[in-house]
Amino acid sequence: MARELHDGFGRGINYLRISVTDKCNFRCVYCMPETGVPARAHGELLTAEEIARFVRIVAQEGITRVRLTGGEPLVSRRIVPLIEEIRSISGIEDISLTTNGALLPRMAADLRAAGLDRVNISLDTLDPARFSQITRLGRVEQALAGIDAALEYGFTPVKVNTVVVRRMDQDVLDLARLSVDRPVHVRFIEYMPIGGGQGASAKDPNSGHGLDPHCGAGAAGTGGALNPDLWDASDVVPSAELRKRISSEAAAAGLGALEPVRDGGPLGAGPARYWAFPNAAGTVGFISAMSNHFCESCNRLRLTADGTIRPCLFSDAEYPVREALRSGDEDAVRAIYRNAIARKPRQHDDIDGTQRFMSQIGG
C-alpha cells in the first residue's frame, strides 16, 4: 500500500471525491436553474480515461477511497466502465457514489457488478408536493425506490443525506424513522452556503444555490415558494438543536429517545456523529459543518468535472490538472497534486458563498 501524503497540518489525505459530470436529471432549486446547466464543450470536461488515469496516479500517493458525485453521476453513460476501471487500480479499497436515487433501480445490478461498494442517496423530505417543488422534475417515489434497490443489491452501508434548512420546516422525524425497520443510515446535515459568491451570484437566473455535502440537498422558501436568494445564516439548524427535537418528537410518538451509537457508526462515517432509536436496524447521524467545524480531521480532496483539484470545499483555491493529464506527464500531475495538498488550509472560515456552485464542485 502506498504511504499517504500529509498536508501542512499533519492530516493524512486518503480520500478523493470526483465529480464525473455537472448534468443532472433533476433541477433542484439550490443546485441549478430550471433549464439546466449551460452545455459545455466536450474538451472542457475530463474523459473517463483521464479520471481513471488521475486515480491511478494518486493511488500511488496514498489515496485509498474514492467517491463519485455529479451533478448526478448516474446520468453519465461512462459511469459503469469508470467504476470497473477504478476497481482495478491497486490500492483503492473503497468506491462509493452519491446519487438522487432515481436511476438506481435499473442500474444497481450493473453498478454492483462493476465494483461499487456503497451509495449515499439524497432525500430532503418525504412529502410528495414539497419534494416536487425542490427537485422540479423528481418524485419522492423515485428516491424511495432507489433506497430499496440499494438494499436489494447489497450496497452497504446505505446512507440517506438530508440537508436541513430552518424555514423549510422539514419532516425530520419521518425521515429519521427510515432507520427503524431497515439498515439505513439517515444523516442530517447543517445547511452550508456553497455558491452565491463573486462570479456565481445566487441572483443569477443561470445559477443555482448549492448545498454540501451532496448535490441533492435541502431547500427552503417562504410559503409555497422555494427561493434560495432568501436563505441566510438564520436558516442553519445546529445539529444539537435538531437532535433534541427529533429525540423529543420520537419519544412522544413512542419510538423512544435517540441513544448514542457506541461503535462510532457505519463504514465511512467521516464527520458524522451517530445516534439510534432503541432496537433500530439503522442509525441517525448528524454532520455539524457550521456549528462544530471538523476541519482538523479532514482527509479529502476534490477533483472537479473540468479537471481542477480543490483542497477545500469552502475555499475557491483550485489547481488545474487537466492539461497535465492530457500531456501524459505523470510527474507534472503528481507535482500539482502534491502542491494542492501542501496548500490545503487549516480550516474553513465562516463564509457567505463560493464562486462555484455545488453542481460545479461535486460535493
Rank of each mutant, 00 (worst) to 15 (best):
M1R: 11
M1K: 00
A2R: 09
G10D: 11
G10P: 13
R11S: 12
G12I: 09
C24W: 02
N25T: 04
R27N: 06
R27P: 06
P33I: 02
V37R: 02
A39W: 03
H42E: 00
G43N: 14
L45I: 15
A48V: 09
E49Y: 01
E50S: 13
A52Q: 02
A59E: 03
G62D: 03
R67W: 04
R67A: 04
G70Q: 06
E72T: 06
P73Y: 00
P73K: 00
L74N: 02
V75D: 07
R78N: 15
I83C: 07
I83E: 01
E84C: 12
R87V: 06
S88V: 00
L97Y: 01
L97V: 07
T99E: 01
T99L: 13
A109T: 03
L111S: 09
A114L: 12
G115T: 03
L116R: 08
D117A: 08
R118N: 00
L123Q: 06
D124N: 11
D127P: 07
P128K: 04
R130W: 14
F131N: 04
T135S: 02
T135M: 08
R136A: 11
Q142P: 10
A143Q: 02
A143I: 02
A150Y: 05
G154H: 08
V160S: 13
T162K: 14
R166P: 07
Q170R: 00
Q170P: 00
V172L: 12
R177N: 00
L178M: 03
L178Q: 03
I189P: 04
G196Q: 08
S201K: 14
S201C: 03
K203V: 15
S207F: 13
G208M: 14
D212T: 15
G216M: 05
G218Y: 04
A220C: 04
T222R: 15
G223L: 10
G224S: 15
D232Q: 14
S234I: 06
V237I: 12
P238L: 10
S239V: 14
S239Q: 11
S239C: 15
A240K: 07
L242M: 09
L242S: 02
K244T: 08
A251D: 08
A252Q: 12
A253F: 08
G254W: 02
V261T: 04
G264H: 00
G265Q: 11
G268N: 13
G270C: 05
P271T: 04
R273T: 13
W275K: 06
A280C: 08
N292C: 07
H293A: 14
F294D: 00
C295A: 12
T304R: 09
D306M: 07
L313N: 11
L313D: 11
S315Q: 12
D316H: 12
E318N: 00
E318V: 06
Y319G: 01
P320N: 10
P320M: 02
E323N: 00
R326A: 09
G328I: 03
D329Y: 14
E330V: 15
A332F: 10
A342C: 09
K344H: 10
P345L: 15
R346A: 15
D352R: 12
Q355T: 15
Q355D: 14
R356C: 01
R356G: 01
F357I: 10
I361R: 07
G362N: 03
G362P: 04
